[in-house]
Design a protein around this nucleic acid. Structure first.
Lengths: 153, 153
DNA sequence: GAATAGTCTACCAAATCTATAGACTTTATA
DNA sequence: TATAAAGTCTATAGATTTGGTAGACTATTC
């Protein structure tokens, strides 16, 4: 039984990454923004954020500039960056079971017949819907929702 | 970046629990089934399964009988046990963020204004849909899908 | 050349997950 | 009533992951 208060399902890395990206998206056109500003404004441990931004850069979402006047800035259009991609980058495949992923497919050891596995079928459906919703959630979409124009809550 | 081969999202506990429950559901009416039989047939480490079944018993899904001729059996109708409940039992709330759960609600530390948080809005939608799909997935539904009558793959 | 700012490597503490071991209790039945 | 069968309880342990820190290094600007 889970005695723990709470099991967070997305990692802090992903959460911080999303927050940093949204922050940068809102300030498109202002030129490079320094790590420490993002860290402060978004309440993210500075050193930890460093490695996150580096990952986002390697993944091609961000670019950076060194030296005075340097910092990070979005490399892609906020329309084109979505939460599904970000989550996959840090937390791996978006699925409850490895057998319903495409890129990270792995058979369940205990599974007797995957072809007719009802559990797999259920989790495949869940994964499909989740990815669909997260793909739709681009940075611009997230920002748009912040304004309260669209609310699902 | 995730260098690990794969991050399994539901715990083995949950997976084993579901498999054990489906197994028991298929054998409703046969009386108590011993732990070791479930362990063998479902390829679950025996001792580990013990504690899982105990949890399921405490949660009111299973009952047990000690001594010779004893074992475990379903206490509820297979229609009435769904994957959402099982997952919650072992893995906690079904949500990517604590701020979109009901029973385990917790505010994100870094969050500036929850009311207008676009990220929260997105993840709330995802959670809602996920729970909906998992609620529909009762043990009987899983078994029905195994037969290949309904397939979403 | 000094200050600024990102990059790289290494490390670490805490928590969680997946078990395993073994003693104990209850029950059926020969 | 002894004994074997079967579930229950407590404790522990190894491996992995997560979240975070430290510090040296490199590149850029003025």
């Amino acid at each position: 039984m889970n005695n723990d208060i709470f099991v967070e399902m997305i990692s802090k890395k992903t959460k911080y990454a999303i927050n940093a990206l949204v922050f940068l998206a809102k300030r498109t056109g202002e030129g490079p923004i320094v790590i420490s500003e993002i860290a402060e404004k978004e309440h993210i441990p500075r050193k930890f954020l460093e490695s996150i931004l580096l990952n986002l850069k390697k993944a091609g979402l961000l670019a950076s500039k060194k030296g005075k006047g340097g910092g990070y800035y979005l490399l892609q259009d906020p329309e084109d960056i979505n939460l599904a991609d970000v989550m996959r980058l840090f937390d791996g495949p978006i699925a409850f079971l490895p057998c319903v992923t495409y890129k990270y497919y792995e058979r369940c050891e205990e599974c007797k017949d995957e072809e007719t596995c009802g559990i797999r079928d259920v989790f495949f459906e869940v994964k499909k819907k989740t990815v669909e919703l997260l793909k739709q959630a681009s940075l611009s979409e997230v920002i748009k929702r912040e304004s309260g124009l669209i609310s699902h809550l």
